[in-house]
Design a binder for these strands. Structure first.
Length: 390
DNA sequence: TAGCCGTGGCT
DNA sequence: TAGCCAAGGCT
């Protein structure tokens, strides 16, 4: 495989050329030339101009988000953990409820893990909640309940990596450190024309992007700047269909959104079935749930509907689509009288109890679809199809 | 370092 | 319908 790559180098030159890669297709043997960037960058970007443009854009377009209305480092920390790999809209639904339940780092540290997981249920990546809980206990035990006020100490907390430490340090404490998340990476890669389908080249570009983000950082207002960069990526410089026509950096952008990227692994589809067992009791209608083992790699200790045979007579009560990582599950939910397989902890729970348990997302989705979980709106999405009423 | 860890809305 | 992928971190 022959590959030539011409990569702009910030330190050596004021001039950028269009990047191109020449290679041999491993299947066909044909020569392949990849051109990157609609427009050639002739000059090093005007950093002061870029800063001014983004500042003005952010002052105009900044969204009102719940965590932008506080200066409490604990609340900002919670928001940043929730926002890891999670959409803003999903976090908005949970952020204030979580803070009502655990308003201070002390209250979070004092809670049991199951309580924290129950409040986190549906947000996904449950290890975040466990690490946040552990970090809160560390902060209380070792720092008198005072949230670390700088990048170096923040990044030592479980669940707080470079991005999150930089975000908290800059937003809550005004420390001039660039917070480089997926949005900022994409914005900088496109701005500079650093795109590649090759994984190694991509990694090199990411390292350059971090340096560039640091160079761009508005040190007079790092918290606002970091949020502005992320906001641009989240609302304008979208992964697909970027809205270049409203971008403050349009004139300076090397690619205008034409951005080759490393391809992801394909998803696979798996059929699965769950049992819906209910009974009436003095306490009201109850449903059977089982607890996942503590040794499970995925969602240990969380509660879900019992498994059921995928091949059954009759129509399921409900069909649900639920993707977990690279697997697309097609789930049929059957009414049944049969007890779940022995060996796992099972329980009849009322609606009220279910809402306080750490339920898996799939189980929440099914219970919503069945009209349970009164605290939530009935599922209206297309991922659930009601076959017949219970 | 690459694989793993969840979920839901959009297209 | 089903793929895409998000304010990442850990091992």
């Amino acid at each position: 495989m022959l590959e030539l790559t011409v990569t702009p180098d910030l330190s050596d030159s004021e001039t950028y050329e269009r990047k191109s890669a020449v290679g041999i297709d491993s299947d066909t043997g044909d020569a392949v030339v990849t051109m990157v960037g609609k427009a050639e960058r002739k000059m090093k970007p005007d950093l002061a101009g870029l800063r001014r443009g983004l500042r003005e854009w952010f002052a105009r377009e900044r969204r009102e988000l719940p965590w932008r209305a506080t200066t409490d480092p604990y609340a900002i920390w919670i928001s940043e953990i929730m926002l890891q790999q999670t959409r803003v809209a999903a976090v908005i639904e949970r952020y204030e409820g979580f803070l009502r339940r655990f308003p201070t780092v002390e209250s979070l540290a004092a809670a049991g893990e199951a309580e924290v997981l129950a409040e986190w249920s549906g947000l996904g990546y449950y290890r975040r909640a466990r690490m946040l809980h552990g970090a809160a206990r560390m902060v209380c035990a070792e720092r008198g309940g005072r949230v670390p006020d700088g990048f170096a100490a923040l990044v030592e907390l479980p669940g707080v990596g470079r991005y999150t430490a930089a975000a908290i340090a800059s937003i809550a404490f005004g420390e001039p450190v660039a917070a480089v998340d997926g949005n900022v990476e994409r914005v900088v890669l496109r701005l500079m024309g650093w795109g590649s389908e090759d994984a190694a080249t991509h990694r090199a570009h990411l390292r350059q992007a971090v340096e560039m983000a640091d160079e761009l950082l508005d040190r007079a207002a790092p918290g606002d700047w970091n949020q502005a960069m992320m906001e641009l990526g989240a609302t304008v410089c979208l992964p697909r269909g970027p809205r270049c026509e409203v971008c403050p950096w349009l004139a300076d952008c090397a690619t205008r959104g034409e951005h080759p990227a490393v391809k992801r692994a394909a998803m696979r589809t798996v059929e699965m079935a769950r049992a819906w067992m209910t009974r009436g009791s003095r306490r009201g209608e109850e449903v059977m749930l089982v607890e996942r083992g503590a040794a499970e790699t995925v969602m240990p200790g969380m509660w879900e509907l019992p498994e059921a045979p995928t091949q059954q007579d009759g129509e399921p009560l409900l069909r649900v689509r639920h993707a977990i990582m690279q697997v697309n599950y097609r789930v049929a939910v059957y009414a049944t009288d049969r007890a779940p397989a022995s060996g796992c902890a099972s329980r009849w729970v009322t609606l009220d109890e279910a809402e306080r348990l750490p339920l898996t997302g799939l189980t929440r989705k099914v219970m919503r679809g069945m009209g349970w979980l009164a605290s939530e709106k009935p599922q209206a999405g297309r991922s659930v199809s009601r076959i017949q009423a219970q």
